[in-house]
Simulated scan of single mutants.
Amino acid sequence: MAYTIDRYPSEDSLRLGAMTLHPVAESVPRARRWFRKFIDPYNLACSLGDCELMISELVTNAILYGRSEDEWVVRVEWFREKNSLRVEVHNPGFPANVRLRCPDAHEAHGRGLLLIDSIADSWHSGPSRFGGTVVSFLVADAWPS
Rank of each mutant, 00 (worst) to 15 (best):
V24R: 15
R67F: 05
R15G: 01
R75D: 11
E26M: 10
C102V: 06
Y65D: 06
C102E: 10
K82C: 11
P92I: 00
R99G: 03
S84I: 01
S47K: 08
P103A: 09
D104V: 06
L100E: 04
Y8P: 01
R33L: 14
P29K: 03
I63T: 08
W72V: 04
Y65I: 08
I63V: 10
D50G: 03
P23E: 12
S56I: 05
R99F: 15
P9N: 13
E69T: 14
V87R: 00
N83M: 06
P29Q: 06
F35Q: 06
L53D: 07
V98T: 10
K37S: 13
P23M: 06
R75F: 03
C46S: 12
W78A: 00
A31Q: 04
D70H: 10
V28M: 14
R36K: 15
V98Q: 13
L53V: 08
E71M: 09
F38K: 03
C46E: 03
Y3G: 00
V59H: 05
R101F: 13
A96Q: 14
V24I: 15
V28Y: 12
E11W: 04
M19E: 03
R30Q: 13
P92N: 05
R99N: 09
A96G: 05
S47T: 01
L85N: 01
S47W: 06
R7C: 13
G17S: 13
V28C: 14
M54Y: 03
L44F: 06
A31W: 03
F94L: 13
L48Q: 11
N97Q: 14
L100A: 03
A62Q: 05
T20Y: 00
Y3W: 13
E77V: 00
R86M: 00
E52Q: 08
E57S: 04
L100M: 09
L48C: 04
Y65K: 12
L58S: 05
V98G: 11
C102T: 11
E57N: 07
Y3I: 00
N43L: 14
N91K: 01
E69K: 12
R30Y: 10
P29D: 08
A25I: 07
T60R: 13
M1F: 02
L58H: 04
W72H: 04
F38V: 02
Y8K: 11
R36H: 11
L21M: 06
H22P: 00
L100Y: 04
E71Y: 12
N61H: 04
E77N: 04
Y8Q: 15
M19Q: 08
V73R: 04
W78E: 01
L85D: 00
W72G: 08
V89K: 02
Y8F: 14
A45D: 14
F94E: 13
V59T: 01
N97K: 06
S10K: 13
G17W: 05
G93T: 11
R32S: 10
Y42W: 10
E77S: 04
S27F: 06
H90K: 05
V98I: 15
M19F: 12
D12W: 06
C51M: 09
